[in-house]
Amino acid sequence: MLDHVFTDAIGALRDAMESAFLERQAFEERFQADVLLGDLTWETSYSLPGEGVPARTRADITLDWPTWAQTAYRSWYIGEELDEPPRIEIEIVMRLQRIGTAPDVSSILSILPEESSPIGGETLQRSSPTLETIYDPDLQPEEYAVEVSYEGSYDVAEEVLADGSVLDSHFAAMGGWIASTLVRLGDVKLDYLPPEDDD
C-alpha cells in the first residue's frame, strides 16, 4: 500500500465506518487522479445494513487532495519549512432516495444538525438541501430524492504528517455520527418505493 498521508486518511475513515457497522457500497467506490491538474479524489458510499439495493438512505463521502496540498506535503517530506499545512477537502452527502411522493424537505432538514462531529479541531458545515425529481417517459414524476451535504476541510498538522496513525483518533467519531444521522433520516416517515431487488 502507498505510504502517504492521504491514503492514511482514507484508511482511517474506512475504519471509522466499519467500526460503526455501516455497509460499504462496493461498486460506488472510486479513486481518481486528475491528469491535468494533479488533484486526487476518493469517493465512496455507505449505508445502514439491510437497506436493500439501492439503499433508501446513504452517505456519499468525498475526500479531495489538491495539487497544492501535495506540494506542501512534499516540501515537508524533504525537510523544508511548512508555510501552510496540507489540507484535505471533505464532503459528506446524506441522500434519501426512491421516494414515491414529493417529500416535505423541511421535516428532513429539521432533524439534521448544522454541523458534523469534530474531525480533529474541524467540523463540516451543512448546506441547503437539494430535491431531485425523476420523471417517467410521459413526464410524470415517479421518484424523488433529497440530498443534504456537509462540507469543510481538515488541515493536516505536522504531528499528523509525522505519524499518520493520529488520523485514526481524529476520524473516529465520523462513523458513529454518520450512522446515527442515517438512522434519524431512516425514521422520517416517507413513501418509499420498494428496493429494486424486490421488484
Rank of each mutant, 00 (worst) to 15 (best):
M1W: 02
L2I: 11
D3R: 11
H4M: 04
V5G: 01
F6H: 04
T7Y: 15
T7S: 15
A12T: 00
R14A: 09
R14H: 13
D15V: 00
M17T: 00
S19R: 13
R24Y: 00
R24N: 11
V35I: 13
L37W: 06
G38Y: 02
D39V: 00
L40C: 06
S45M: 08
L48W: 03
G52V: 07
A55D: 09
T57Q: 14
R58H: 06
R58F: 01
A59S: 13
W65A: 05
P66M: 03
W68V: 14
Q70I: 10
T71R: 13
T71E: 14
Y73E: 12
S75M: 08
W76R: 11
Y77W: 06
E80G: 15
L82K: 06
L82R: 06
D83G: 03
R87E: 15
I92V: 15
I92Y: 02
V93P: 00
V93R: 11
M94D: 01
R95I: 10
R95P: 01
S107G: 04
I108K: 03
L109I: 08
I111M: 13
L112I: 02
E115T: 15
S116N: 06
P118H: 06
P118Q: 02
I119G: 04
G120W: 10
G121D: 14
E122F: 10
E122L: 01
T123A: 06
Q125V: 04
R126E: 09
S127Y: 04
T130I: 14
L131D: 02
L131Q: 09
E132G: 02
E132D: 11
T133R: 08
D136Y: 02
P137G: 07
D138P: 06
E142M: 13
Y144V: 05
E147C: 05
S149R: 14
Y150M: 09
D155L: 11
D155W: 05
E159F: 07
A162H: 02
A162L: 13
D163Y: 09
V166G: 00
V166W: 03
L167I: 03
L167N: 08
S169T: 11
H170F: 07
F171T: 07
A173T: 12
A173H: 09
A173C: 00
G175F: 02
W177V: 04
I178C: 09
I178N: 07
A179K: 14
T181N: 09
V183R: 14
R184Q: 14
D187T: 06
L190I: 12
D191H: 10
P195M: 11
